[in-house]
Design a protein around this nucleic acid. Structure first.
Length: 307
RNA sequence: ACGCCAGUAGCUCAAUUGGCAGAGCAGCCGUCUCCAAAGCGGCAGGUUGGGGGUUCGAUUCCCUCCUGGCGUG
């Protein structure tokens, strides 16, 4: 029966060693890798997103890398659609799949689903965004008091989304979102493992890795990218470090200043990721500082593939 | 050595004619259902360089010492 082997999910903060562990496992189990990452989908953004190298990708098939142009918008919904297709197709072939990456929201959306509602409508959003936070909040209170209660008046992004959903469907987002409350079975069967680190140790790894990325030519890569795509899409631009490096390339800030800020942003990113992943209750944690071989062996056992 | 300027939260800086020492960033906690590497909320943080003086009251005025910067020797 197709789909008999569950997915292996590997979560963990940036720089925790997810990719290395996934590669090791893929090699030893003959599995393929599904990237669950909002930034590695972008073409041409390689160094700063720590994308697996061409060499690694020749060795092990990777899915959902380089699927979007850097001037294109991307979203959780598009990700889920693409990932579902990859999983379905892998199941059909009987291929084992390891899902790993740094975007917690995408894991949640992929396994728990998004509520059935309208997708982003940029024109409508633009119209709504012209209003101030309190105005949006007041307006939402009229049509969806429950949502207005939960969303802070300053959180214009969520206020805009809630109003967008209401205008497009005539239904309050708070009602539609209840779909998620029913304990539905997970959309895909999976074994979840995570890599965790003591915070200070991870910070040191992050600082070192940012430095390595710069030495590996991140700035030059970005210059080339900007030559082809002078304006990155709103979502692509949100990748950690890219805004600072764009400022540097434009001559607005020095490289040292940009690098320091990137280190700070990356540490903050890692913290937010850890907070999310801690809330995924079915994750079995492995210690990041262990030898890869040891973690891989544990992971294989958890996946039910012990030799 | 002399002169001038500065010293306030981890960092960068605010504080009206002397009147309860604030903000941004970093840090910590929380939130998150089609932008999520995003967005949003909260908390903590200070013998105002040290010492003395004037005053009901000094970050603010006076004296002195320390530290840093600039200028002249």
């Amino acid at each position: 029966m197709a789909g008999e082997i569950p997915l292996l999910v590997i979560v963990g903060p940036t720089a925790s060693g997810k990719s290395a562990l996934a590669m090791e496992l893929a090699r030893s189990c003959g599995a393929e890798i599904l990237s669950v990452d909002s930034m590695q989908v972008y073409q041409g953004m390689d160094i700063g997103t720590a994308k697996p190298t061409q060499r690694q990708r020749r060795e092990i098939p990777h899915h959902l890398l380089d699927r979007v142009r850097p001037d294109e918008q991307f979203s959780a919904a598009r990700f889920v659609e693409m990932a579902d297709r990859v999983i379905e197709e892998s199941n059909a072939r009987g291929a084992k799949l390891i899902a790993t990456g740094g975007t917690p929201m995408y894991f949640k959306a992929l396994f728990e689903g998004l509520f059935e509602g309208p997708s982003a409508d940029e024109a409508l959003r633009k119209r709504l965004r012209a209003m101030s936070g309190p105005e949006l909040h007041e307006r939402l209170k009229q049509v969806d008091a429950a949502a207005a209660e939960r969303i802070h008046a300053a959180d214009s992004r969520r206020l805009v989304r809630a109003l967008e959903v209401y205008e497009l469907t005539g239904q309050p987002i708070s009602t539609l979102q209840k779909q998620w409350e029913r304990q539905q079975p997970a959309r895909h069967r999976a074994v979840w493992i995570g890599l965790r680190w003591e915070r200070e140790a991870l910070n040191r790894r992050i600082n070192a890795r940012v430095k390595e990325m710069i030495e590996a030519g991140w700035v030059e890569e970005l210059r080339g990218l900007l030559a082809e795509f002078p304006v990155l899409s709103k979502t692509a631009r949100e990748a950690t470090g890219y805004a600072q490096l764009v400022d540097h390339v434009m001559g607005r800030i020095g490289l040292d200043e940009a690098v320091e800020q990137i280190k700070i942003d990356t540490r903050q990113l890692a913290r937010r990721q850890m907070k999310w992943f801690r809330r995924f209750r079915n994750v079995q944690w492995l210690e990041g500082q262990n030898e890869i071989a040891r973690n891989a062996e544990d992971a294989r056992r958890m996946w039910g593939l012990a030799s």
